[in-house]
């Protein structure tokens, strides 16, 4: 198949003095200053409720800042224009812990949902997808290695396969940025490593800026380039995955580390080279 470019734009993200206070008074983000360069692979860690999801969801406007600003490729979000919001979201793929597929539709139909914002609305709603968009979707499926499942109903796939469909759907957007919100939290250890390797490979091959929320520290260390630590909505760590220490993790989590903070890793199958 042709080597079409899967992304067109560079994905730079910049938070400036950003904050989110939820209507119930909970602080989701506090005085955040953060800059992410195009093509970076960033892992965000922190205990639950630390604001990891809030951070990701602020980037595509699912959460709105209550103070400060966030810029995607230099363009400020939160202007209140739904049209602008949709244009920005078009270039940001999102992957979810619970996959969020249309279970009764085929894998192909699910991946085509990534093309919704790229074709005229009536075409998508009548299922009259242009040939070019079908090819982009097929290409995305190929990149996650489940081309043979294209016409299978999404509900019939295993968890790992469903998450691959989720990744393919994000890829079909030809995004500049991919946001993965706990993408492996409902998967077994073997599948977890496969999905993480997929995400890293796609980041390397296509240069898509990738942000991944994780709560397993060994995964963060193994797959991240840059690690960002959050605690109570505040940035408490920002550094390389190669130099991060257990001491740093203790500071991020505000407690001692336990066995629950790592994926059990003895059972990696077939020596497929699970990182170094």
């Amino acid at each position: 198949m042709s080597e079409r470019p899967m992304t067109s734009r560079s994905g730079a993200i910049r938070f400036h003095d950003a904050g989110i206070v939820y209507p119930n008074g909970v602080v989701g983000m506090k005085d955040l200053d953060l800059e992410i360069q195009p093509g970076e692979f960033v892992v965000i860690v922190g205990s639950s409720g630390a604001g990891k999801s809030t951070l990701l969801r602020a980037i595509n406007g699912l959460n709105t800042l209550t103070s400060g600003r966030v810029e995607i490729n230099g363009e400020a979000l939160n202007t209140g224009s739904t049209r602008q919001l949709r244009r920005v979201r078009k270039n940001i793929g999102m992957i979810f812990q619970d996959f969020r597929l249309v279970k009764r539709l085929s894998v192909m139909s699910n991946v085509l949902i990534g093309r919704l914002a790229h074709v005229p609305a009536w075409r998508s709603m009548l299922g009259l997808w242009p040939r070019e968009d079908r090819e982009i979707a097929a290409d995305a499926l190929k990149r996650v290695g489940i081309t043979d499942k294209a016409w299978v109903k999404a509900s019939q796939l295993s968890g790992g396969q469903q998450q691959r469909v989720g990744i393919a759907r994000a890829l079909a957007q030809q995004p500049a940025i991919i946001l993965a919100d706990e993408p492996v939290a409902s998967l077994d250890p073997v599948t977890t490593h496969q999905i993480m390797r997929d995400l890293v490979r796609i980041n390397r091959e296509l240069g898509i800026t990738t942000l991944v929320n994780l709560h397993f520290l060994d995964l963060a260390r193994e797959y991240g380039d840059r690690i960002i630590g959050l605690r109570f909505g505040e940035l408490v760590y920002d550094g390389s995955a190669r130099t991060v220490t257990d001491e740093d993790f203790r500071d991020i989590y505000g407690r001692d580390l336990t066995a629950d903070d790592v994926v059990e890793d003895e059972a990696v199958e077939g020596g497929e080279g699970g990182g170094e």
Partner: peptide
């Protein structure tokens, strides 16, 4: 799922 459709620019 509706939120995911929104996130994809729908």
């Amino acid at each position: 799922l509706p939120e995911a459709i929104r996130a994809a620019g729908g």
